[in-house]
Amino acid sequence: MDEQLMLVENLDMCFSTGKGNITALHNLSFDVKKGEFLAIVGPSGCGKSTLINILAGILRPTGGKVVLDGEEVREISPKMGMVFQKYAAFPWMTVRQNISYGPRIARKPKSEIEKITNHYSSMVGLEAYEHLYPKELSGGMSKRVDIARAYANQPEVLLMDEPFGALDDITKKQMQTELLNIWGQENKTVIFITHDLEEAIFLADRILVLRRPKEDQNSLNFIQPVPFSRPREPELRTCGEFVRLKAELSEVMLK
């Protein structure tokens, strides 16, 4: 569990605009351990979106680097699975075609594609809906397709960018519980970006709290370990210690 999988070193990101340079990230360093569930939170304007894009390899940082498994991340790579904020299932493919996309692109043998697809399709409970197109799915089901598709490609890390942001509260909580189950079964490292503190505390092993960068202060506020044992039940959200931690973090973020 303590084996290091990913290293983010002295990340800097400046955007030049007409009015001068804007610093989105300043001297941000942290590491990600193999198999852990890491949440990243922070107030708006703290560079969360920028960080996601750099981790995913969509943006190149102006300074520092991201190292995954000994290799610097320079572009989008299948080692880093993505679950996006928006629904990203290909609308022209059925649920099953979506889930099997990664293995099909990798030209794996047919029997293996079948096996992997069946596994992940049943993992998210979509066996009965495999022949449907995304337009026929509810929001929660679409998200399940995104998650199953990312897992089916068997990446080293899953990067989830506010994946449940668009869901209603009940569906969101259901999905959180399901995600924890999947994470428990699959033992894959997850980096989960969210603005929802409750979500972060409920899901994560550690929470990376970011802040707006300034000349004299770097982007990382602090790292908050989450003390609750697993498996976690939905009732955890109402226990005193949980509520206290949430209030504490919320206060820090408001400052």
Binding site: A56, I58, E75, I76, S77, P78, M80, G81, M82, F84, K86, A88, F90, Y101, G102, I105, A106, R149, A150, N153, P155
Partner: peptide
Amino acid sequence: LYIDAAKSLG
């Protein structure tokens, strides 16, 4: 988004 998703799937 779809192009990024495809790239991230290899």
